[in-house]
Design a protein around this nucleic acid. Structure first.
Lengths: 246, 246
DNA sequence: ACCTAGAATTGATCTGGGTCAAGGATACTG
DNA sequence: CAGTATCCTTGACCCAGATCAATTCTAGGT
């Protein structure tokens, strides 16, 4: 269980304060939020919310990675969202969850009791404004992903995922652009397959192929080095940028 | 060119007034909107907005169907959204369009000049609230579609699309649930293929197969009858509902 | 150091849907 | 009412990625 005491100090030391749903709130508003908020942690693999369950809270990912997943009766599953620190979980105004939310790594969440949060959303435009912004970004990311799922080859899909993960990591670490890019894969091969609409065998084969071709260098199974990021983008089939992940 | 005079009467006679982004506005707010609004019509096949272009306006689809489309350099295209009457076009706060918007049928739009609209959004929470609601719905639809693109077979994809189009039509015509469902396909085979991540040949083959198996009855190439909607849902692989389209 | 279990790789084979190609069906135009 | 353009269907063949089946890594745990 992750130690939560380091967070209870309050919002002024919160690592996601500038990007989360509360980013625009002033001191008063943060005070009100504080009264309906609590922290929870989840271990890797644990399901945070089951699809169909009543949602008691909404909230933000503080640290770790979670995934939104949809499953058909016969077991086929598709990941429909990757939730990173500062991303918002839950849908105000809806009683029941529509997707499974699963902790991919250990996760700490900042939760708000749902009903009071919804009330507050009506009264404080700062929250709704920020949530709209974040939701529009997520919609863009989802649409970017529809192109990946619908039209890209397996190799392009892997390259797309790696470029997103790498870009995200670079943004976090403030790394320079042209230098070598290094990061750890936060996903298992199976999770990547669920994200990409592939089988885990195909994921494995394509990663091996990218390694053989020198597009990436692997150290162990998870540690990735990208010697030439532009090369990776070319492999992803992205004309220019390759889209963002919220 | 569609006759626009029937709309200039104002918002009180607008067919989408209860579902569009202005749905929550009171009379004063509608007056303000009126001052920055104008109607435009587009013919089937015409591109309403080009990806990368500066966006001069945002707005609502009043009648007709448009599609959001993404294209790779080599020509592969993926439809990432289907815009129906009352759906919102454009992203406030963004200068350049990220997708092509193409009129699938003849389309009439209610446009707002972008800059004044953005100003108004900050000042009148009713607009932002409604837009948030609509964006969340679209995000759900996009995620539903990711499952279709990533994990469903060609036959399931076609059945999914038909069930969405049928459901939408039924909602519009207030038809009873258990009776026969009849509607016209608003999309060409190629547009369906672009939506489903398939080729037009596969779309044609699967439609023929569904016809042969009695899941649907075709009259001409566009007029569809669904004798048993539950059967269609089963073919779509949807456990219960099959998801909504904004 | 050994044991176990999940994660990953790699090979062999199969198949759903893509590709290429040849017509049909409508509908508009002159 | 032929001429032609668009949309659609159908057939033959092929290949990317799925499926089935072993191994091989790697990280804990004892």
């Amino acid at each position: 269980m992750t130690d939560l005491t380091k967070f209870v100090g309050g919002c002024e030391s919160c690592p996601i304060q500038h990007r989360a749903v509360c980013a625009r709130c002033d001191a008063d508003e943060l005070d009100r939020l504080e009264s309906i908020k609590y922290y929870r942690s989840f271990e890797a693999g644990q399901t945070i919310i089951w699809s169909g369950d009543r949602m008691e809270f909404v909230g933000s990912i503080v640290s770790g990675i979670a995934s939104l997943t949809q499953t058909m009766e016969d077991g086929r599953t598709q990941m429909v969202g990757l939730l990173l620190p500062s991303d918002f979980v839950g849908r105000p105004g809806r009683d029941a969850a529509t997707y499974d939310v699963v902790a991919t790594t250990d996760v700490v969440m900042c939760c708000f009791r749902r009903k009071p949060f919804e009330t507050m959303m009506v009264e404080t435009p700062h929250i709704a404004q920020r949530l709209l912004e974040m939701t529009l970004d997520e919609l863009d990311a989802a649409r970017e992903w529809m192109l990946v799922l619908g039209r890209k080859t397996a190799r392009e899909k892997i390259a797309s995922l790696l470029s997103i993960l790498g870009r995200r990591d670079a943004a976090l670490n403030l790394a320079g652009q042209d230098q070598e890019m290094v990061f750890d894969l936060p996903l298992t091969r199976e999770a990547m397959a669920d994200y990409l609409g592939l089988t885990l065998e195909t994921v494995s084969r394509q990663i091996s192929a990218l390694k053989k071709d020198g597009v990436i260098v692997l150290e162990g199974k998870r540690h990735v080095t990208v010697p030439d990021f532009q090369r990776l983008l070319d492999e992803a089939g992205d004309d220019c940028d390759g889209g963002m992940m919220a």
